[in-house]
């Protein structure tokens, strides 16, 4: 095993261009969980980004919040403005793993780890976040909602690093985030959903119910059209159009569909006077 410790972004991108097999590492919270078991990982080479200080800070622009490539959950939890303006980021961050994980794990790492159960991704996607990728070849920007194309497949070339995540600042009148895990902390999501409504319209994003975190266009259409919904089961056809949950070691497809329907139905009933 070898570990490269770049001191600047330019150096990091240079290393990655020279050896695209390098595994970039930010907080290491996904990588290290299976470290003792997965000895094949021990033979790979790593690009430890912890010394690339310029990737760490996040900043508020006039019309967007820009997260750095190393910005952690904890950085946002500590930012009072985020509590007021983009509270779902806080809701999600506080439910990731444990405080220890929250202080190490990064938003960008959560995106590129590409787990269908990622907790940071649904809220970013519901806020229309844009992923900024840099390489020695230049910069590209991809809306998070179009970033994934399959299980662990994404629009990132091996020589690219996620250096920023741009989150538009908008006024929202509905904001919901629900994470259902098998316990109240240190839990991997069995089914989750983030919902927002702004001038840009409804966003419904679900996790752990498809090969990747995704928007749910059929459900968004139901909400846009203000169609009558008499009970949670009325949402099931839309859910089945949008997502494809499976039975696995953590839960069942039936449970995931049912719970997604019930969370959406009851939460919208509680929060949105026009719903029902």
């Amino acid at each position: 095993m070898s570990v490269l410790l770049p001191g600047s972004l330019a150096e990091a991108l240079g290393s990655l261009a020279a050896d695209p097999d390098l595994v970039p590492m930010a907080g290491g919270t996904d990588l290290l969980v299976h470290w003792p078991q997965r000895t094949e990982l021990h033979e790979r080479s790593y690009l430890d980004l912890s010394g690339v200080e310029e990737l760490r800070p996040h900043r508020w622009e006039a019309d967007e919040l820009v997260l750095g490539g190393l910005t952690t959950y904890w950085d946002i939890i500590e930012d009072r403005r985020a509590w007021n303006e983009l509270p779902l980021l806080i809701d999600a961050a506080r439910q990731v793993g444990s405080v220890q994980i929250q202080t190490r794990g990064s938003w960008a790492g959560n995106i590129v780890n590409a787990s269908p159960a990622a907790d940071g991704v649904p809220v970013l996607m519901a806020y229309d976040a844009v992923v900024v990728l840099d390489s020695t070849r230049g910069r590209s920007e991809v809306p998070l909602s179009g970033f994934y194309s399959g299980y662990k497949e994404m629009r990132r070339s091996p020589d690219e690093l996620v250096t920023e995540i741009r989150v538009p600042r908008r006024a929202y009148d509905v904001q919901i985030f629900e994470k259902v895990g098998s316990r109240r902390a240190q839990a991997i999501t069995k089914v989750g959903v983030a919902v927002t409504r702004s001038d840009a319209g409804w966003r419904v994003v679900a996790n752990s119910v498809a090969p990747f975190v995704c928007r749910c266009p059929a459900l968004e259409r139901i909400l846009e059209e203000g169609a009558a919904v008499g009970g949670p089961d009325d949402l099931l056809p839309g859910i089945r159009e949008d997502v494809s949950p499976i039975d696995d070691i953590r839960s069942t497809a039936e449970y995931r569909e049912n719970v997604l329907a019930r969370l959406l139905y009851y939460d919208l009933l509680d929060l949105c006077p026009s719903f029902g």
Binding site: S182, A185, I249
Partner: peptide, 14 residues
């Protein structure tokens, strides 16, 4: 499920 990520014991919050 021979791991504590999927064999679930409670946290203090549970």
């Amino acid at each position: 499920n021979g791991q504590l990520t999927n064999y679930i014991i409670p946290t203090s919050g549970d």
